[in-house]
Nucleic acid binder design. Structure first.
Lengths: 241, 241
DNA sequence: CGTTGCCTTGAGGTGCGTCAAGTAATGTGG
DNA sequence: CCACATTACTTGACGCACCTCAAGGCAACG
């Protein structure tokens, strides 16, 4: 039995699902595979006919730039449908990579289509989830354009803590976060050197510690205050109406 | 008769529509209104039950920041469905504002839902269009994180020229672009002062001139080269398969 | 004809990048 | 068990892209 518990928890955060819908979702995957750390699961541009559900591990959407630089447009945690947008886009504008060892479930697009026709409400629900991506991107483009490094890193820690808490992957403000300082820089548009200095500041202010692929939030209120963190862009509240 | 020609042109760029689908789309709007320049059509956070089609004019999605700064996450041109994502998100994480005088058509969400049930393919097609938003955001978060000001402004001019050409709003590399230099800065994460200097450079290099709410591209090849412009993120090709 | 909005330019400051060197932890093979 | 890579982290010195502050120009407008 494929363990979709985290995915279902995540979806249920906003939309209450009935038994038939849950059964339909459980039937989606046709294959489960483990990928090693730092592997590229999907390459930019290739036309694909299935989407990928992240059962466990951390992944990212990475853009490779012509000048050799690299940018991570989004991070993904257990339970995320990491490339549902390939259902409509057919090809991706970015790579999909693992950060640590990841368990992935693959869902053929034709099964999605069949499910959406049988359960039109699920189509709206999954459409919502791709809209969430866009909302997340909007948040980050704004943050990177307008906020400075300290605030950005603090914001990222706040966001990840919240997202991981939903799927039960935090403990007392601490969570695994298998990134290097270079990765953090690639997420936030900073050099590893500067990331290092900012992390030192966060440590000295006793707000958060990032070490050995793990984040310990020491002062959540202080960190949120520094980040001016408002989780509205994550749309965690139940659907209105 | 409401003029959806530009919208239909835009949709047809990727998906060929049949007569029934076109008729269904034409039936969507229940109201058309003109909004003056610099007006806020939708405010962040309000729960809404209709979406907005931009018939003519320029609009933007603007985020107001707690510190008084402002960021435009996306620009919209004639023919764009500017807040289709409110169909799934119910509230927006940003304001929707006009830049110049705009003609808008409003589409109640219940009509969208009825159309999507009658024409499931149209659901996928419009889902695609919200996925496009996300792809656009990914492009810009990467650009702002990794590229410098000159390159970013050049990229924006390239993107707008392409998007406006599709709906017939360019003439020989020139197009209306009713933004101030401050607006450009709000799009790209730059101060008006620096935008001004970069525009001067573009002028001096005889690549592009931005003046009086109008862009004249003098050397498209040179501008694209400077911007390292690759339009893949706009998904302008016809749908694969 | 003063006000207002936008553009322009200069002078000086700063957040972050670049370059460079060194440390620590882990792994590899002889 | 020890040389030697390799990878990630750390810190210092210095430079640059962009910001801030400030002043002035110009056109539109009541």
């Amino acid at each position: 039995m494929i363990d979709l518990a985290r995915h279902l928890t995540r979806v249920s955060q906003r939309h209450v699902l009935n038994a038939d819908e849950i059964a339909a979702i459980r039937d989606l995957p046709d294959e489960v595979r483990i990928f090693p750390p730092r592997s590229t699961v999907i390459r930019e541009g290739e036309v694909i006919d299935r989407s990928t559900l992240l059962l466990s591990g951390f992944m990212c959407r990475a853009k490779q730039l012509p000048n050799g630089k690299r940018h991570m447009a989004e991070l993904h945690v257990s339970g995320d449908f990491i490339d549902l947008h390939s259902y409509t886009l057919k090809r991706l504008d970015h790579d999909i990579e693992t950060l640590n060892s990841c368990q992935l479930a693959f869902v053929p697009h034709h099964r999605l289509q069949a499910m959406f026709e049988a359960f039109p409400r699920l189509a709206r629900i999954y459409w919502f989830h791709t809209s969430l991506d866009a909302a997340n991107h909007r948040h980050w483009v704004t943050s990177i354009a307008q906020a400075q490094a300290l605030e950005r890193i603090a914001t990222l820690f706040c966001e990840m803590a919240l997202r991981l808490e939903i799927v039960g992957l935090t403990r007392e403000g601490s969570f695994d976060f298998p990134l290097t300082q270079t990765d953090l820089g690639d997420c936030l548009g900073l050099t590893p050197v500067h990331v290092n200095r900012v992390l030192k500041t966060l440590r000295e202010r006793e707000l958060a510690v990032f070490r050995n692929g793990r984040v310990d939030i020491l002062d959540q209120a202080g960190l949120r205050d520094l980040a001016q963190f408002d989780p509205a862009y994550l749309y965690l509240e139940p659907e209105p109406l």
